[in-house]
Design a protein around this nucleic acid. Structure first.
Lengths: 161, 161
DNA sequence: ATATAGTTGACTAAAATACTAGGTTATGTG
DNA sequence: CACATAACCTAGTATTTTAGTCAACTATAT
């Protein structure tokens, strides 16, 4: 289980989807606006999420994406795994014979830790995250910001601290 | 808390050090041989580990590295954090104003998950790993084939978000 | 004196990341 | 039907990270 910013993008996008779960299809353009992720990058991520059947799509006007299952049945671990397609670059590659036919320390150790982390992230669902107050609050702020037509798509945050 | 192969290299090297903790300084060349990590790459990793005072060095013939503290006081999280020097590329960068002065979903969510993972990895020390998997024997019997060691995975504390 | 072993810096190939550009295809609406 | 919409797809690209090499240097035990 690798943990990188790519996985975070995917989880964030899926959470956005979960937050609008009862509002018909969600457009990637909307997620892009709300979460500040480039549209084309989202398209790539969602191609992978779709392949794993974590989302379903509706084409054409009024279209967008739905969660493939109920929010409380989709774990964070699944989402991360979906975009981090297996890049197992271990010497042993699971065979356990990376060093002169012997089991290597590395593989077992890391696989164990990795599995523990995975198990933890598997216990957290999108449904769990949606229930969180802080997330609901931020989501509401995002909704208010994107409602008016006056809000331009231009989003170069010239504002620093 | 990022989880990549780089972190695994560092943890593996530190575990090797822990295994030879009572045998005087451990040479990087030895770790390189045993764990199959390039010497020069190890040098880079140990430069970072040294900066974080996770190891101490002895120069000259017979020299090498020692753990900076006792194995049971060095957590896996610390080791990983040491080599994954903060490359926080979040839009908000911790300030929480990534999107038009507002807190972003991403930051809170990911920081929380990341903190949970960190807390978990912080609860595992090098001392634990040496004991739990009984790898000391494996490392001492390099010429022998050894059976796969079943991991005694510690149960994840029921976590709540 | 010499070999050892850490220390440092510059450099590099390969991969992953994050994104851009420019299409095509399906489909709802006027 | 025309058209706008939005998913879908492919290719390319800049940047960063990974993993490593190479070369020089400093400290120290023998």
């Amino acid at each position: 289980m690798r943990l990188t910013t790519k996985g975070r993008y995917a989880v964030t996008a899926m959470l956005d989807l979960a937050l609008h779960h009862d509002q018909g299809p969600t457009r990637l353009a909307g997620i892009s606006d709300r979460q500040g992720i480039s549209l084309s990058y989202l398209e790539q991520l969602f191609a992978q999420l779709r392949r794993q059947e974590l989302v379903t799509s509706v084409r054409g006007p009024g279209g967008g994406y739905h969660l493939g299952r109920q929010p409380d049945t989709i774990s964070v671990a699944e989402v991360i795994a979906a975009v981090n397609e297996d890049t197992d670059t271990t010497r042993c590659g699971g065979a356990g014979d990376c060093q002169e036919g012997e089991i290597c320390l590395t593989h077992h150790l890391w696989m164990d830790l990795s599995d523990q982390v995975r198990a933890f992230l598997q216990s957290i669902t999108l449904g769990d995250l949606v229930e969180r107050q802080d997330i609901r609050r931020v989501s509401m702020q995002q909704a208010m910001r994107s409602k008016p037509i006056e809000s331009m798509a231009e989003q170069i945050p010239a504002s620093n601290l």
